[in-house]
Amino acid sequence: SIVTKIISIVQERQNMDDGAPVKTRDIADAAGLSIYQVRLYLEQLHDVGVLEKVNAGKGVPGLWRLL
């Protein structure tokens, strides 16, 4: 499923980069989806406690990390 793919992308990127959070844009590119589509999935995963959003604010790139 797309959700499983997104989780594995975040996991893979974090492992490659010493646990650093992953940008929404990088996840979207790797999943082959638009940034808006991916954001909806990321928000859902956040709501159920799978991911945390590391930063927030208007015009700030979203950074995500697995919990």
Score class of each variant (00 low, 15 high):
residue 1 S to M: 10
residue 1 S to H: 12
residue 1 S to W: 12
residue 1 S to G: 11
residue 1 S to R: 12
residue 1 S to A: 12
residue 1 S to K: 10
residue 2 I to V: 08
residue 2 I to P: 03
residue 2 I to M: 12
residue 2 I to H: 05
residue 3 V to H: 10
residue 3 V to A: 08
residue 3 V to K: 11
residue 3 V to W: 15
residue 4 T to A: 14
residue 4 T to V: 11
residue 4 T to S: 13
residue 4 T to H: 13
residue 5 K to C: 13
residue 5 K to R: 12
residue 5 K to I: 09
residue 5 K to N: 06
residue 5 K to P: 00
residue 5 K to M: 12
residue 5 K to Q: 09
residue 5 K to L: 14
residue 5 K to E: 05
residue 6 I to C: 03
residue 6 I to M: 02
residue 6 I to K: 00
residue 7 I to L: 09
residue 7 I to N: 00
residue 7 I to K: 04
residue 7 I to A: 03
residue 8 S to F: 12
residue 8 S to R: 14
residue 8 S to G: 10
residue 8 S to Q: 13
residue 8 S to E: 11
residue 9 I to T: 03
residue 9 I to C: 05
residue 10 V to M: 15
residue 10 V to N: 00
residue 10 V to H: 00
residue 10 V to Y: 01
residue 10 V to L: 14
residue 10 V to C: 05
residue 11 Q to T: 09
residue 11 Q to W: 14
residue 11 Q to P: 00
residue 11 Q to F: 10
residue 11 Q to Y: 12
residue 11 Q to D: 04
residue 12 E to C: 14
residue 12 E to F: 11
residue 12 E to W: 13
residue 12 E to L: 10
residue 12 E to V: 08
residue 13 R to E: 03
residue 13 R to P: 03
residue 13 R to H: 07
residue 13 R to D: 00
residue 14 Q to N: 06
residue 14 Q to Y: 08
residue 14 Q to M: 14
residue 14 Q to T: 08
residue 14 Q to A: 08
residue 15 N to M: 13
residue 15 N to D: 10
residue 15 N to F: 11
residue 16 M to Y: 08
residue 16 M to V: 07
residue 16 M to S: 09
residue 16 M to F: 08
residue 17 D to M: 15
residue 17 D to N: 15
residue 17 D to C: 15
residue 17 D to W: 14
residue 18 D to W: 10
residue 18 D to L: 11
residue 18 D to C: 15
residue 19 G to A: 05
residue 19 G to H: 06
residue 19 G to K: 06
residue 19 G to W: 05
residue 19 G to T: 04
residue 19 G to C: 10
residue 19 G to S: 05
residue 20 A to T: 07
residue 20 A to K: 13
residue 20 A to S: 08
residue 20 A to C: 09
residue 21 P to S: 07
residue 21 P to K: 03
residue 21 P to E: 02
residue 21 P to W: 15
residue 22 V to C: 05
residue 22 V to E: 01
residue 23 K to W: 05
residue 23 K to N: 08
residue 23 K to F: 04
residue 23 K to H: 10
residue 23 K to D: 08
residue 23 K to R: 11
residue 24 T to V: 03
residue 24 T to H: 01
residue 24 T to R: 02
residue 24 T to S: 04
residue 25 R to H: 07
residue 25 R to L: 06
residue 25 R to D: 09
residue 25 R to F: 06
residue 25 R to C: 07
residue 25 R to V: 10
residue 25 R to P: 04
residue 25 R to G: 08
residue 26 D to Q: 05
residue 26 D to P: 01
residue 26 D to L: 04
residue 27 I to K: 00
residue 27 I to C: 01
residue 28 A to C: 03
residue 28 A to I: 02
residue 28 A to G: 03
residue 28 A to W: 02
residue 29 D to M: 12
residue 29 D to C: 08
residue 31 A to I: 14
residue 31 A to W: 03
residue 31 A to L: 10
residue 32 G to I: 03
residue 32 G to S: 06
residue 32 G to M: 07
residue 32 G to E: 05
residue 32 G to H: 06
residue 32 G to N: 08
residue 32 G to A: 06
residue 33 L to E: 02
residue 33 L to F: 04
residue 33 L to C: 04
residue 33 L to T: 03
residue 33 L to S: 02
residue 34 S to Q: 06
residue 34 S to F: 15
residue 35 I to P: 04
residue 35 I to H: 05
residue 36 Y to S: 13
residue 37 Q to T: 11
residue 37 Q to A: 10
residue 38 V to L: 04
residue 38 V to T: 14
residue 39 R to Q: 12
residue 39 R to S: 13
residue 39 R to H: 08
residue 39 R to Y: 11
residue 40 L to I: 14
residue 40 L to P: 10
residue 40 L to M: 11
residue 41 Y to E: 01
residue 41 Y to D: 00
residue 42 L to T: 15
residue 42 L to D: 00
residue 43 E to Y: 07
residue 43 E to F: 06
residue 44 Q to T: 08
residue 45 L to C: 02
residue 45 L to D: 00
residue 45 L to T: 01
residue 45 L to K: 02
residue 45 L to R: 00
residue 45 L to A: 01
residue 46 H to A: 15
residue 46 H to R: 14
residue 46 H to S: 12
residue 46 H to P: 06
residue 46 H to G: 04
residue 46 H to T: 11
residue 47 D to T: 13
residue 47 D to S: 14
residue 47 D to W: 12
residue 47 D to M: 13
residue 47 D to Q: 14
residue 48 V to Y: 11
residue 48 V to A: 14
residue 49 G to M: 02
residue 49 G to T: 01
residue 50 V to L: 09
residue 50 V to R: 05
residue 51 L to D: 00
residue 51 L to V: 09
residue 52 E to T: 05
residue 52 E to L: 06
residue 52 E to Y: 04
residue 53 K to S: 04
residue 53 K to G: 03
residue 53 K to R: 10
residue 53 K to F: 07
residue 53 K to N: 14
residue 54 V to D: 02
residue 54 V to Q: 02
residue 54 V to G: 01
residue 55 N to S: 12
residue 55 N to P: 09
residue 56 A to F: 08
residue 56 A to V: 11
residue 56 A to H: 11
residue 56 A to C: 14
residue 56 A to W: 08
residue 57 G to I: 06
residue 57 G to D: 08
residue 57 G to T: 07
residue 58 K to R: 08
residue 58 K to N: 13
residue 58 K to P: 13
residue 58 K to C: 14
residue 58 K to F: 08
residue 58 K to D: 13
residue 59 G to M: 05
residue 59 G to C: 08
residue 59 G to Y: 05
residue 59 G to Q: 06
residue 59 G to D: 09
residue 60 V to P: 10
residue 60 V to Y: 11
residue 60 V to A: 14
residue 60 V to G: 15
residue 60 V to M: 14
residue 61 P to W: 12
residue 61 P to M: 12
residue 62 G to M: 14
residue 62 G to S: 15
residue 62 G to A: 15
residue 62 G to I: 15
residue 62 G to F: 13
residue 62 G to V: 15
residue 62 G to R: 08
residue 63 L to Y: 10
residue 63 L to Q: 09
residue 63 L to P: 02
residue 63 L to E: 14
residue 63 L to A: 13
residue 64 W to H: 02
residue 64 W to M: 00
residue 65 R to I: 12
residue 65 R to F: 12
residue 65 R to M: 08
residue 65 R to V: 11
residue 65 R to K: 10
residue 66 L to E: 03
residue 66 L to W: 08
residue 66 L to Q: 02
residue 67 L to N: 12
residue 67 L to I: 14
